[in-house]
């Protein structure tokens, strides 16, 4: 079982080596000329007015919460989809009930404006 992952593991090692090698190479090869104005974070020529580490829109958090909800739904659907032909009508009705509950949830979020970006 785990043998089939051998190739993926080797590729992971090689990919890591490539990525790390690139970062090391660029930090060695390039010139280093630092001065105060240059080291400032880019803000269209201005010096930084506010720190980026502040509060930002709650919409992003909302999307994250919804993502967890619907991604778990997708995870439940994967095994069902593969066995679908064996499960037949029972599987369809069973999953329709599940999708219906989630559909109600989606409609609720939709109506409450959780999906609006205005």
């Amino acid at each position: 079982m785990l043998e089939s992952y051998t190739g993926a593991a080797i590729l992971l090692l090689i990919a890591t080596a490539i990525a790390v090698g690139m970062v090391v190479a660029t930090s060695i090869l390039g010139p280093k000329r630092n001065f105060a104005d240059k080291m400032e974070p880019f803000e269209c020529g201005e010096s930084q007015l506010v720190s980026p580490y502040q509060r930002f829109s709650v919409k992003f958090y909302l999307v994250a919460v919804l993502f967890i909800l619907f991604d778990i739904e997708a995870v439940f659907l994967f095994p069902w989809a593969i066995l679908y032909k064996k499960l037949g009508l029972f599987g369809l009705i069973e999953m329709m009930v599940f999708l219906l509950i989630l559909g109600v949830g989606l409609t609720y979020v939709w109506i409450r404006g959780g999906l609006d970006w205005e």
Partner: peptide, 8 residues
């Protein structure tokens, strides 16, 4: 990056 654009 400590940059407003980057974080956005």
């Amino acid at each position: 990056s400590n940059n407003n654009w980057s974080l956005l």
